[in-house]
Nucleic acid binder design. Structure first.
Lengths: 68, 68
DNA sequence: GTGTGACTCTAAGTCCGTC
DNA sequence: CGACGGACTTAGAGTCACA
């Protein structure tokens, strides 16, 4: 499986585990609302610094988000 | 420590463990020689697909390269 | 063999909406 | 609440000559 798909699935799983909407999560991660939507659909190819921004509010590492 | 620095150090460590020059490694990973140089100095902010390209010839995952 | 500045071109990333 | 489109600005992708 592709990295983008792995990130997409991990992100959605962890976000939902927190009970957060995409909007709420986007706010917590300091990224745009639509960007979260795009990433969870595997439609984007984010930079590693963005992955780190996404990882922070979830309490995991950038490495964790790409894992599996 | 910053993700870019973690990638930089992991990449350099793993590449040298293979006994490869940046040039040799760049060829194996299908990226430009100078791009490898930039990443190992933490001077670039690559996308996750690039990280995956770098991981392949080292026999590790994209997640591994960002780890630690 | 590696570092660095500069360059072009494409995509990252933001923001406006609507369905 | 989330998918998706269009438009926009900035930064990454990819390359080169030269140190």
């Amino acid at each position: 499986m592709d990295v983008r798909q792995r990130l997409a699935r991990n992100l959605r799983r962890l976000r939902e585990a927190k009970g957060w909407s995409q909007e709420k999560f986007a706010f917590e991660a300091n990224v745009h609302r639509t960007y979260v939507s795009d990433i969870e659909r595997g439609a984007r190819n984010p930079t590693i610094t963005v992955v780190e921004k996404l990882a922070a509010p979830l309490g995991v590492t950038a490495s964790d988000l790409l894992a599996n």
